Amino acid sequence: MMASPIGVGLIGAGNISDQYLANLTTFPDLRVLAVGDVLEERARSQAEKYGVPRSGSVEAVLGDPDITIVVNLTVPAVHVQVSEAILAAGKHVWTEKPIGIDRASSRRLLHYATAAGLRIGVAPDTLLGPGMQTAKRIIERGEIGRPLFAQTSFQWQGPELFHPNPAFLYAKGAGPLLDMGPYYVSALVHIFGPVAAVGALGLRGSPTRRVQVGDLAGQSFPVEVPSTLSVLMEFERGGHAQSLYSTDSALFRHGVVEITGTLGTLVIPDPNTFGGRITVTRPLTAMPVAPAPLVQEAIELPQEGALTGRGVGVLDMARSLRAGRPHVASAELGYHVLDTLLAIEEAAAAQAFVRVESTTGRLGSLPADFDPLAPTL
């Protein structure tokens, strides 16, 4: 006889809660029971929009006895504080990235969870989508040989182009590195393993930015962190990567992830998405004779698995809790990614290579037949 679905609550009813609620409320193995926010009217509105039965304060979500996992969708500066409160209430945590904004409090959070026998899952769960999971299987099958190096790029004008209150995205704990870096670093760690050392150069294109949409349009806010970083990464098990993170670029180029191995180059989907086109390019057998053009075929490879969206990491946590197995997007991975991103900030400030002190074990994968919409609990 199947057990009942696992109860889920959300804290934080801001912009990203739509993406979570749209998916979490469709997974049969989960039941979203409550939405909480310091602005209770905002929580009520989101609960009504997605058919969630209860809403109210943060304390109401924490005190709900039917909730097993709480999803922390607050701003980065309070991620640790809110996650600690969730653990203190005896509930498991899924937190938006990053896990925290400094090493000391984030390590304390991990120790707290371990001592309490509770789990922490850390976004991004895009790496659990069929795009990244298929790419990982392709590499593990040896289709591009031994991975040698990667190139990634994220560049555009910045989130003030669409976000009604973007100042926090340029504050400590954010910027293009800590806001978008978790997607790219998580993807690279899944492929190459833990990061050993990083080097970086950074700059601020402007000391202030201006809100462009919404009620605050026209207001200026400070840029507290580098808005462009050029990064080099070395991995413990060999290989390296070159990455660009910028919100100073007129050229819009998102989601570039190219993995070159001894037998070819794999182009994988944007790590901020759950799926997309996957291609492999093989080495040339001979150079064409001029004036014949040099043509390289990008061979498209099939994507395996069901495509959903944000919230699949919460589902993996729920299923793994019942099965007694580790979940993939773990606190250990989330901390290593944060440690790497902070080391990049330090490397940019010092204009030197910085060792990354933390590490991770072998990272798990989802099976090719993982179906978020199938009832299993």
Score class of each variant (00 low, 15 high):
261 G>R: 00
100 G>Y: 00
189 V>A: 09
111 H>V: 13
269 P>Q: 05
29 D>E: 05
356 V>A: 06
156 W>N: 15
340 T>C: 03
374 A>L: 09
21 L>H: 04
313 G>N: 05
121 G>Q: 07
257 V>C: 14
246 S>Q: 02
180 M>Y: 11
218 G>I: 03
153 S>W: 00
25 T>R: 12
325 R>F: 00
64 D>Q: 07
360 T>P: 00
238 G>F: 00
276 G>Q: 09
93 V>S: 11
324 G>N: 02
275 G>E: 05
15 N>E: 11
15 N>D: 15
292 A>T: 04
16 I>H: 12
140 E>N: 05
281 T>D: 09
212 Q>C: 02
234 E>N: 15
275 G>R: 01
368 A>R: 00
18 D>Y: 12
2 M>V: 11
87 L>W: 01
204 R>N: 10
138 I>S: 04
76 P>D: 08
125 D>V: 00
156 W>T: 08
149 F>P: 05
226 P>Y: 11
147 P>A: 01
232 L>Q: 15
28 P>K: 03
282 R>G: 01
23 N>E: 09
133 Q>S: 04
315 L>V: 08
26 T>G: 07
342 L>G: 12
286 A>F: 02
102 D>F: 08
66 D>T: 08
148 L>M: 13
343 A>T: 11
28 P>E: 05
244 L>I: 13
116 A>T: 01
111 H>S: 15
374 A>N: 07
109 L>Y: 02
66 D>H: 11
166 P>G: 09
169 L>P: 00
149 F>I: 03
120 I>T: 04
249 S>K: 10
5 P>H: 05
340 T>Y: 09
217 A>C: 08
84 E>R: 15
362 R>F: 11
262 T>E: 13
342 L>S: 11
205 G>N: 03
264 G>Y: 01
299 I>A: 10
160 E>V: 03
193 G>E: 11
62 L>H: 02
156 W>G: 11
22 A>E: 14
338 L>Q: 02
364 G>F: 01
370 F>Y: 07
180 M>L: 11
138 I>H: 08
4 S>F: 03
361 G>H: 02
252 F>V: 14
226 P>H: 12
367 P>K: 05
298 A>T: 02
316 D>C: 06
338 L>I: 03
246 S>K: 04
330 S>Y: 01
261 G>P: 07
277 R>C: 02
74 T>E: 04
240 H>T: 14
207 P>H: 06
168 F>Q: 09
252 F>N: 15
298 A>I: 03
149 F>C: 12
144 I>G: 05
9 G>N: 09
234 E>K: 12
190 H>S: 13
159 P>H: 12
23 N>K: 07
143 E>C: 05
345 E>S: 09
31 R>Y: 01
232 L>C: 09
367 P>C: 02
319 R>T: 02
134 T>Y: 00
123 A>P: 06
39 L>W: 07
280 V>M: 14
126 T>R: 08
3 A>N: 14
154 F>I: 07
112 Y>M: 15
82 V>C: 10
171 A>S: 14
114 T>S: 15
335 Y>M: 13
148 L>E: 15
212 Q>H: 06
147 P>Q: 04
273 T>I: 08
327 H>I: 02
318 A>I: 04
37 D>T: 02
26 T>I: 04
10 L>D: 10
21 L>G: 00
119 R>E: 14
54 R>L: 13
352 A>L: 09
344 I>R: 10
40 E>A: 11
146 R>T: 14
293 P>H: 00
251 L>Q: 14
97 K>H: 13
